[in-house]
């Protein structure tokens, strides 16, 4: 899968030799706070992704609209308060119902693949999720790595779904 923008981050991290001396913006070893949605949006942009901070109409909860592999995804925030920020976040994407979607298909993915979890909901649509804690800080390179897992496994999923569709005899 494509990981060109993230490769740059990984390589930068690999050649970094003086972490103690460098805590400025752009330093992959610096510690970052993921509990604030506005901060996560900036970090996503720094990692080469678009990020638009929004609020859900019904609950007022914050989320970020972004995209990977040319396909939209959101980052949802949980257990948020003005004082403490949010305690966890969730990468989320959604694909409308197809005849070849099935529970055995989601199980084939979930039993063989890491990180990205896929689910058929009661309407037959496909949801994909990845959860992480936002309590305490992580290094910027760790956050970039997390996004990279989401992006590369979502890319893998498209390949998997194309193969499943083919195996199902071209049922669109």
């Amino acid at each position: 899968m494509m990981r060109s923008s993230m490769m740059a981050v990984a390589l930068a991290a690999a050649i970094w030799t003086v972490p103690a001396a460098a805590q400025q913006k752009g330093d992959p070893a610096r510690m970052v706070d993921l509990s604030r949605p506005e901060n996560v949006a900036k970090l996503l942009q720094e990692a080469g992704y678009k990020a638009e901070l929004k609020k859900h109409d019904n609950t007022g909860d914050p989320f970020i609209a972004s995209a990977a592999n040319g396909s939209p995804f959101t980052i949802e925030f949980y257990d948020c308060s003005p004082a403490k920020g949010c305690t966890s976040l969730q990468f989320f994407s959604w694909y409308s119902k197809k005849p070849y979607y099935s529970i055995p298909m989601t199980n084939r993915w979930n039993a063989q693949k890491r990180f990205l979890r896929i689910v058929i909901d009661k309407d037959g649509d496909l949801s994909t999720w990845m959860d992480i804690s936002t309590i305490g800080k992580v290094s910027f390179s760790n956050f970039a790595d997390t996004i990279d897992w989401w992006q590369s496994m979502s890319g893998d999923l498209f390949t998997f779904l194309a193969e499943e569709e083919k195996a199902a005899g071209g049922k669109k």
Partner: peptide, 15 residues
């Protein structure tokens, strides 16, 4: 599954 490149704080890992 969790990505660990670059490391995470003890507090984050504890959570």
């Amino acid at each position: 599954d969790i990505g660990m490149i670059g490391g995470t704080t003890k507090r984050n890992f504890a959570d």
